[in-house]
Design a protein around this nucleic acid. Structure first.
Lengths: 238, 238
DNA sequence: AAGTGGTCTAGACCACAAC
DNA sequence: TTGTGGTCTAGACCACTTC
């Protein structure tokens, strides 16, 4: 198993920071020191450090060094491209997933048409609700192009679809176009969730692509307004 | 004026893509070709291409080349770290800013305490509403540490504070921690905006930092629910 | 076999910060 | 002056795609 050096260094640094071994406002060893420590060249170390900076772990300051940033308020990363299972693991809350609908459909159906598939292209539809701390507050509607995902079962949908896609099927999920809007609650929202009087939902719409740029998934993650939170880290373009 | 080669290449490619000179699904010239075209080394070309990939312009495919992605649905970039003036320019809509309050305050005040300043540290407070296509739908509440921003005037706040900070004051705005939540509308929302019956607001909270990691601004951008839209591009971590 | 992007190296020169 | 990160180079080897 071939492992990239800069990925190794990146993960090692993330571990050190998240474990508290290195604290906010500490300065990392210099790039030259890190070259010695990891037995590699400077450009490779810099690749790892740039990933840390891009993801909000450090700030590089010319002439000084790389300072570790305070990520206290950066919990709950709905940001990026992360599955619900990965999310609930970092949250450490008691969660449960219920599958309400699972089957093959032929677009055009309301949301599946976002996939822009051919008329005879079959699509998996999955509707699930998420219970967190005893309340049903998220409704996830997923649509997968069958060409890329030949089989889906209830068991897979209750566990983690992404784990199955990447692990079992070997799909390389690469990037997503993400959109957040607020919409009136629909019939299914009212049917499957504890809406608590809210008339609208915060909706995260995702169009997910594979490495070869083919669109293979459209998702709507519908959150009860009072429980919705999205956290992100952004750098200013030069 | 020293200009970085890879920034030049990046901007040139962005221009070519956004002008339609290169279209979605086109393949860029190979990295070696680009080295010749720009008279530079491959690592420098790759730095530019990686920025393009990170920002959702292209997808690099091993053995094939760099494919231009369809950014049709990527308009309205509330994402990243962008000012309202920059935003409205890319939108091309008729907008107007009204300054409702501008002055120096001493925290702790409700929102300014997010800055975590000392008790005797003065803070600028700016409250502005944004009118888009004839409707007042956004309320922006900004708080700046006076130490970093000695003077603010009504004229500056009506134009672009960021332009002033980066241009006149020479501040290097570097990164931000961003949070999106939904909150009940407040007194000021009702006072300054056309709420149209909505009881809640979509709120984008920003904590903005300078290059030296000092926190200098806290912002709440409060949007009427039906007009709120946030678009982002995300890549999956390996 | 030829061309593509992915990783890695060893060195160079620069701008900035600290002493 | 020394040490830091920022940029750039010329070359190497690899894995993958295409022909």
């Amino acid at each position: 198993m071939k492992v990239n050096k800069y990925i190794t260094i990146y993960k090692d640094m993330v571990r050190q920071i998240e474990s508290g071994q290195r604290k906010a406002e500490d300065v990392l060893p210099s790039e030259n020191d890190l070259c010695d420590q990891y037995g590699t060249s400077r450009e490779t170390v810099r690749k790892a450090l740039n990933m840390l900076a891009q993801n909000g772990y450090i700030q590089k300051i010319k002439g000084k060094g790389s300072v570790i940033l305070d990520r206290e308020k950066m919990r709950f990363p709905v940001s990026g491209l992360i599955s619900f299972k990965e999310l609930s693991e970092t949250l450490g809350k008691e969660t449960r997933t219920t599958v309400h609908r699972l089957g093959l459909i032929l677009p055009p159906s309301e949301a599946a048409k976002e996939l822009g598939t051919e008329a005879d292209e079959k699509v998996w539809e999955v509707v699930r609700s998420r219970r967190i701390d005893g309340e049903h507050i998220i409704l996830d509607k997923d649509y997968f192009v069958k060409k890329h995902v030949p089989l889906l079962t209830k068991a897979i949908c209750e566990d983690s679809i992404y784990e199955y896609l990447e692990g079992e099927l070997g799909l390389s999920i690469s990037y997503a176009q993400k959109e957040i809007v607020v919409e009136p609650a629909g019939e299914e929202d009212r049917k499957y969730l504890d809406l608590g009087g809210f008339s609208h939902m915060a909706v995260v719409k995702n169009r997910v692509f594979l490495e070869d740029t083919s669109l293979f998934q459209y998702t709507e993650s519908r959150h009860r307004l009072d429980k919705f939170r999205f956290v992100d880290f952004a750098r200013r373009e030069k």
